[in-house]
């Protein structure tokens, strides 16, 4: 099995580690496991010192709503883990203004301090990344 740990990588690989990654959350809470699976990828990438940014797109912003009570459905509340992201140096979060408008939300309704970008800025944001994962 290849290396598990980034230490001891070749200089070429160290160079490669300057890659950054964007992870896209596109599903509402409780729909399937994709938001949780995406979050796990974020933490793993961060542990390997890949700079990680998160985009909450379309229904993905609903994952961030305050006042959720996941325990009523015997589900895990992903926000506890989302709120711990800063400890993993993951602090770059984006939402789209149109998605906020669609659900009549403001950033105060969201559990993470997200940067709001316009629809027109989305493509330019995506351009900045070397890898995008969109489960």
């Amino acid at each position: 099995m290849p290396l598990l740990c980034p230490t001891g990588l070749s200089p070429l690989a160290t160079e490669a580690m300057k890659k950054n990654i964007l992870l896209i959350f596109r599903n509402p809470p409780f729909a399937n496991s994709s938001n949780s699976d995406t979050l796990d990828i974020a933490l793993a990438c961060s542990a390997f010192e890949l700079p990680v940014s998160l985009l909450f797109l379309s229904d993905g912003i609903l994952q961030l709503l305050n006042h959720q009570q996941a325990e009523l459905l015997a589900q895990k509340d992903l926000r506890k883990r989302l709120n711990a992201l800063a400890m993993y140096d993951i602090e770059d979060y984006y939402v789209i203004d149109q998605d906020l408008i669609r659900y009549q939300l403001s950033v105060e309704d969201l559990s993470l301090a997200c940067k709001v970008i316009t629809q027109q800025q989305l493509a330019a944001l995506i351009r900045q990344f070397d890898t995008v994962i969109n489960l």
Partner: peptide, 23 residues
């Protein structure tokens, strides 16, 4: 097949020129 952690995915992203998702 081998069971392993998501670190193997992070390693794959770092070590590969392209990571392609099929879903």
């Amino acid at each position: 097949f081998q069971l392993s952690g998501l670190g193997q995915l992070a390693d794959a992203i770092i070590m590969s020129d392209r990571t392609i998702t099929f879903g």
